[in-house]
Simulated assay, not measured.
Amino acid sequence: MDPVTITVMALTAISGLMKGLSNYSAGKNAKKQADRAAVQARQEGGVEAAIRLAELDEAGGELAVRAAANGGGLAGSSADALDELERKGMFNVRSAIWGAETKAENASYEGRVAKKEGTIGLISSLVETGGSLAGQYGKAGEASKQSASRQKLGS
């Protein structure tokens, strides 16, 4: 094989390898970023739940003080109102946690997909490079055979 063909084949191999490694690296980086987003979503959900719980405690305390100030204590409708307030408040706390966990799981899933796509990109680049090299090698071999045949015919 002539030096030009060898150089072209080497450059093709290097280019394909670089493309594949770039795909793989991008997938790994996207996974890391998604993992960080998942952690942040869980932290934000915890803060949101804590805020909702604090609001619930404050509202419950305020309702209890009003009931006591009116002389009724926590009986009858005051107790029912406090129970209803607690149910709604705990629902809001659980909703904040569930929403954050859902967001975190979605981010984790997207990260896993990105990493798989990077791996597939690497593999497909290597296969593509191998096919290209095989084609170039075949062309070079065919050109060599044709040149040899021409030389035989010419002599």
Rank of each mutant, 00 (worst) to 15 (best):
A41Y: 12
G46K: 04
Q40E: 12
M1A: 05
T7N: 10
W98V: 12
G141M: 08
K139C: 01
S95L: 11
V93T: 02
G71T: 02
L153V: 06
A64L: 07
L153Q: 09
W98D: 14
A41K: 08
N106E: 13
Q40G: 00
S147W: 04
L133A: 10
A107H: 11
K145G: 00
A67Q: 07
Q146M: 03
Q40N: 02
I97A: 06
Y24K: 09
A140I: 00
G72L: 06
G121T: 00
K139A: 12
G72E: 15
S25G: 11
T129G: 13
E101K: 11
G71P: 07
L82S: 10
A10Q: 09
Y137A: 13
Y24S: 11
G89F: 02
E117T: 05
L53S: 11
L53F: 07
R94D: 15
A96C: 12
M90H: 09
N70Q: 09
D80K: 10
A114V: 10
R36E: 15
T119Y: 07
M90G: 02
A10I: 01
D80M: 15
K139H: 04
Q33F: 04
I51L: 15
G27M: 07
S147I: 02
S22Q: 06
A34K: 10
E117F: 04
A38H: 06
Y109G: 01
Y137N: 02
F91Q: 11
A143F: 02
G135D: 11
E58V: 10
T102D: 07
K139F: 06
L21Y: 07
G118P: 15
A10Y: 00
S15Y: 08
G154R: 14
L122I: 05
R52W: 05
G141Q: 14
A54L: 05
K28H: 07
D83I: 07
R87I: 15
G154C: 04
K28C: 06
G71D: 03
D57V: 06
E101Y: 05
A68N: 13
V8Q: 15
E128M: 06
M18Q: 03
M90T: 04
R52M: 12
S155A: 10
L126Y: 01
K31R: 15
K88N: 09
A13W: 01
N92Q: 14
V39Q: 13
G72N: 11
S132G: 14
S149V: 03
V4Y: 05
R112D: 14
N106H: 08
G131S: 13
A104T: 05
S155K: 11
Q40R: 03
V4H: 04
L56D: 05
E84Q: 14
Q151V: 08
E101W: 04
G141R: 14
D83Q: 08
L53W: 04
Y24N: 14
Q33V: 15
M90R: 12
K103A: 15
L17G: 10
E58W: 08
K103M: 03
G89D: 06
S144Y: 00
A38Q: 03
A69H: 05
A26P: 01
S95K: 12
L56C: 04
S147R: 12
L133Q: 13
V65N: 06
S77K: 13
N23E: 15
K145T: 00
Q43N: 14
A104M: 08
T5H: 03
M9Y: 00
A59E: 14
T102C: 04
G20T: 03
A38G: 12
A107D: 09
T7P: 02
